[in-house]
Design a protein around this nucleic acid. Structure first.
Length: 811
DNA sequence: GACCTGCTGCGGCGTG
């Protein structure tokens, strides 16, 4: 437990400790490691900090420095600054001689040099910065007093290569200081034990999970459109709800409005300002393509309370430690339960308070998504984040990191790496390959000295070349991003970035909207688009970014499928959608989890099949390609396809049918891998994925900070390497790595396979419908918008909707 | 190079 002075301070400043905090301090005093799981706003940070501070006070006098006793790892630089403030608070009164400092990429080089000489009592850093520190030979000596490592927001890192990089760094620290205690702080996850094993190593002897038993109440409310009959069956912007949302914004002192995409953020920002002209100056926006300065000023506005509403993407999911907002609104699909809860947690940021989120549907069925998220939350069906398994590109990088810091024997390194969950089954063969690759460059690159970074002398790996070492340090990390076009005023002020594909569609003089400003293009040269403020009356286009395509989670999808049938209990959202569900039922059937509903519809364009497996967009993309490939070879017609989070559609001029055998064959797992590979352009996918792998493995020359170089150069050399490896070194394990990543990330292979297995046991219900059903409509409309210019698609959709609404009234 | 709705995150060093 805590020493009296700490307890007194705590009592004075923060009141009575919560039960989980006492439990954590007890575990800490016993020398254990583990995971602390509690909702945001429960005082995790302070609890995790005071344990090691208490232990250090036992060992060191409070008036003498105690160098680097605690290492605090955070996934965000912005969090590092805020964390620093809260960690310093108790130290100031309890042990003023002990310092707490941050070391991240934006720590000045002067400070970084100082920190290399002498480390403070507590060091706050990122996984990347920690890896960088491992490359300095004296770091090990500097860490001899290390007692505790704390990893904040571990759920954010878990499941990514950044998480594996953290696992590896921790394994190194464990080897250097076998007594250290490691604690992770995590939000709610479906796989807390696995998360803990990944953090402290699967073989760790004193593992414990401390949980704040009191779960935070979460209220999910949905804005229900007044006229459900006129509410769109398809679409994703949800701007029809602007009026109702504006009234909510007006009524609350502060609002955080989340959207799912950057362009949606831009659009909602405009719409809200128009709907609330009096508040226009206190509404702001925040997303990942805005310039850092712009974002920082919005973050400052959130902190000092001068903003009434910020429209944002997941860029504000975590990070800025602002005082909680009054209200959180989610526009569009929540995609997952944990994700919605995380966003809701931005309100009611105190123990005992309720987190509330208001869901805004963008089409009719989305109403049910919010009800389903509520059902799943109540039933504690929360998504897991699975840790990655054996990414070899990262192992190549990390081995060089280790050897640069301390020459070492391969067998000893292997032993160290095998203590992680990610590499516990790394076999001797794979390890020999890694060592061979960093010392020889492998079969294909042996002739090029720049790929022989390490040398093996007398059984010890060394990394001595100064220039290569600098390049390696520059390359540390796992985040890769494609080329972006910088948007600038002629004055040089940077506004942010857009995609090349967007800017090349614009002619000089043409207007567009970015970061809430009306701009016009002056010229586009190399990687910079120069713009000026536009005074044109009509609104310009809104940029579209080519970002990630997050599928609906398995947990939420299954909750939706259940919700469609009105279970587990009546919900207001369900009552609202009832008229549309009635049409769906009348014309076809309500898809669910017991049978697979397949609709067959003839239109002017030909024959359509609509299938609803509810397996998320990525899986449907794979299933659609697979089914289209198999059927088209049978019927000799080309097949078009579309997909969304609920299902997919196949369209052919003729030849599709109600034949169950045909559909069973299309969805069989026989020859699955071969057919899937043949149906999708997986070779091209692997080539692109290889770029990330090559980057992480350090095979590409990194950009020097400040000097911008077209990423296209990177692309060329990564595809060149891909060619060379494919031809001269086909056994190169990095090629396998790229293929595995395609399977897991882009095809969600595990989920796809599970879906097919499950469908094989389900009855198929094939129904011929006269018209497009409410569920089919979005899949049909998707195809339409892909084939027509945006304006035409909108007007045609409008006409269709008119017709459909009339039909709906008639039912 | 194809897509069109599509997120987020990090990172060096020495000198002036």
């Amino acid at each position: 437990m805590l020493r009296p002075p700490l307890l007194e301070w705590l009592h004075r400043e923060k009141g009575e400790p919560l039960p989980f905090q006492k439990q954590l301090w007890k575990a800490h005093a016993e020398g254990r490691s583990g995971l602390l799981h509690a909702p945001t706003g429960f005082g995790k940070t302070l609890a995790a900090w005071l344990g090691p501070v208490a232990a250090a006070l036992d060992r060191h006098p409070a008036d003498k420095p105690a160098p680097c006793s605690v290492l605090w790892i955070t996934p965000l630089r912005a969090l590092a600054a805020d964390t620093l403030m809260s960690l310093r608070e108790p130290i100031k009164t309890l042990a003023p001689a002990w310092e707490v400092e941050a070391r991240t990429g934006d720590t000045s080089s002067y400070r970084r040099a100082k920190l290399r000489e002498r480390l403070p009592f507590g060091l706050v850093t990122t996984p990347e910065s920690l890896s960088l520190m491992l490359t300095y030979p004296d770091f090990r000596e500097k860490l001899k007093h290390l007692q505790t490592v704390i990893v904040d927001e571990w759920h954010e890192l878990l499941g990514t290569k950044r998480g594996v990089q953290t696992e590896l760094a921790l394994a190194r620290l464990r080897r250097w200081c076998p007594e250290i205690q490691i604690w992770g702080l995590s939000a709610t996850l479906g796989n807390l034990d696995e998360a803990r094993d990944a953090l402290i190593g699967p073989e760790h002897p004193h593992a414990i999970t401390v949980s704040a038993k009191a779960t935070k109440p979460l209220e999910i409310e949905t804005l229900i459109p007044d006229e459900i009959d006129r509410f769109p069956w398809a679409g994703h912007l949800g701007t029809r709800m602007v009026g109702a949302v504006a009234r909510r914004v007006e009524a609350a002192a502060s609002t955080l409005l989340f959207t799912n995409t950057r362009s949606q953020t831009e659009i909602w920002f405009q719409e809200l300002k128009e709907a609330l002209p009096k508040l226009a100056d206190s509404i702001a926006m925040h997303h990942g393509s805005l310039a850092k300065k712009e974002r920082a000023s919005v973050e400052a506005g959130l902190k000092d309370g001068s903003l009434r509403c910020v429209v944002c993407t997941s860029s504000l999911d975590l990070g800025v430690d602002f005082s909680p907002v009054d209200q959180v609104i989610q526009v569009g699909s929540p995609k997952g339960i944990a994700r919605l809860a995380q966003r809701a947690g931005r309100s009611g940021h105190q123990p005992g308070q309720t987190s509330r989120i208001v869901g805004v549907p963008t089409h009719a069925f989305e109403l049910l998504e919010f009800a389903a998220a509520r059902d799943a939350w109540k039933a504690r069906h929360i998504e897991s984040r699975r840790p990655l398994h054996k990414p070899l590109d990262l192992l190549v990088q990390h081995t060089l990191t280790c050897v640069l810091g301390q020459p070492d024997r391969p067998a000893d390194l292997l032993g160290e790496f095998r203590t992680t969950l990610a590499y516990r089954d790394l076999d001797d063969e794979e390890w020999r390959w890694v060592v061979g690759f960093i010392t020889e460059g492998g079969d294909a690159l042996k002739a090029y000295p720049q790929y022989r970074k390490a040398t093996l002398r007398n059984g010890v790996l060394h990394f001595e070349d100064k220039r290569a070492a600098q390049l390696h340090r520059l390359n540390i990390g796992t985040i890769t991003s494609g080329s972006a076009i910088a948007l600038k005023f002629a004055s040089g002020k940077t506004l942010g970035t857009v995609e090349e594909s967007f800017i090349t569609r614009l002619k000089p003089g043409q207007a567009f909207i970015f970061g809430g400003r009306q701009l016009e293009l002056v010229r586009f040269h190399k990687l910079t688009a120069t713009v000026r403020a536009s005074t044109r009356r009509h609104r310009g286009q809104v940029p579209v970014w080519n970002g990630g395509k997050m599928p609906l989670s398995t947990e939420l999808a299954s909750a939706i499928a259940t919700r469609l049938h009105g279970r587990p209990a009546p919900a207001p959202e369900h009552r609202a959608v009832r008229p549309i569900l009635a049409i769906q039922r009348k014309w076809s059937a309500i898809p669910g989890t017991r049978e697979l509903v397949i609709e067959f519809t003839r239109t002017r364009e030909g024959e359509h099949l609509f299938l609803y497996p509810f397996a998320g967009r990525l899986v449907h993309e794979g299933l659609a390609a697979l089914a289209a490939y198999r059927i088209s070879s049978r019927i000799g017609e080309s097949i078009d396809l579309t997909q969304n989070d609920y299902g997919f559609s196949l369209i052919a001029r003729r030849g599709l049918s109600l034949d169950e055998a045909l559909m069973r064959d299309a969805l069989t797992t026989t020859n699955l891998v071969e057919d899937l590979l043949a149906s999708m352009n997986t070779a091209e996918m692997a080539r692109r994925q290889f770029r990330e792998v090559a980057r992480v493995a350090g095979l590409l020359v990194p950009d020097f900070p400040g000097k911008r170089r077209p990423t296209r150069d990177l692309q060329v050399s990564s595809s060149l390497l891909f060619e060379v490896f494919s031809k001269y070194d086909p056994a190169n394990l990095l090629l396998d790595q790229a293929r595995r990543e395609i399977l897991q990330r882009q095809l969600e292979w595990t989920r796809l396979k599970a879906t097919l297995d499950e469908l094989a046991d389900r009855p198929f219900r094939i129904i011929e419908t006269e018209r497009l059903t409410p569920m089919a409509f979005p899949l049909w409309a998707d195809r339409l918008s892909a084939h027509l210019p945006a304006g035409d698609a909108a007007s045609r959709l409008e006409a269709m909707l008119e017709q459909l609404s009339e039909d709906a009234m008639a039912v």
